[in-house]
């Protein structure tokens, strides 16, 4: 890889991450009926980065978003940060599996909605696991799990739909790998 290619990737990552961070911070300002439920629109950016470029770009975008987003919101190294980090890690793992699936089975490939739902469920699952194991190991928390997962499914579908709409309107990417 030449220096020029690296610079291009870096610029892409910086641009996507800036967008994701802005959405992350805006979302943090919205009240939520149940802690842990929010639309997660910042993940749409991760998804677009994955589908137009690569998992590597998506991982950088998500990582930077969690790090810088938490610094700006003021939750860095607090419980919310760890939950966010666990969620993002799980979602990236799910997206990685999805990308692998697509590489192996091109004819039955996942597109934005499927990947978004996978990532959203993984995000909520990872977050819930850390919350339950580390912060509040109370069985009552399990009662919330169905509600949280249902919200994840809903917002995953919405996010996937938004990503598909945006992708359809963007000019074709160069070097898409998924």
């Amino acid at each position: 890889m030449s220096d020029a290619a690296l610079t291009r990737d870096d610029r892409l990552i910086a641009g996507y991450a800036a967008l994701a961070i802005a959405i992350h911070v805006l979302e943090a300002g919205f009240p939520s009926p149940v802690p842990g439920i929010k639309p997660g629109l910042a993940n749409v950016v991760t998804l677009i980065a994955l589908l137009r470029h690569s998992w590597r770009v998506a991982a950088w975008v998500a990582g930077l978003r969690v790090l810088v987003g938490s610094l700006l919101v003021g939750t860095f190294l607090g419980p919310a940060f760890w939950l966010s980090a666990a969620g993002a890690t799980a979602a990236l793992a799910a997206l990685g599996l999805g990308a692998l699936w697509n590489r192996g089975l091109r004819r039955a490939a996942l597109s934005a909605p499927g990947l978004s739902v996978l990532a959203a469920l993984a995000h909520m699952g990872g977050q819930f696991f850390v919350a339950y194991r580390v912060f509040v190991p109370h069985p009552g928390l399990l009662h919330l799990l169905p509600l949280l997962m249902a919200a994840a499914l809903l917002f995953g579908l919405v996010g996937g739909w938004i990503a598909a709409q945006i992708l359809a309107r963007l000019p074709p990417a160069t070097g898409a790998s998924v």
């Binding site: 996942l110 909605p113 249902a150």
Partner: peptide, 15 residues
């Protein structure tokens, strides 16, 4: 896609 539908159905079942 078909795979998307399968994922959504499986996710709904899980929920």
């Amino acid at each position: 896609t078909v795979a998307d539908r399968i994922v959504v159905v499986a996710a709904s079942l899980l929920v």
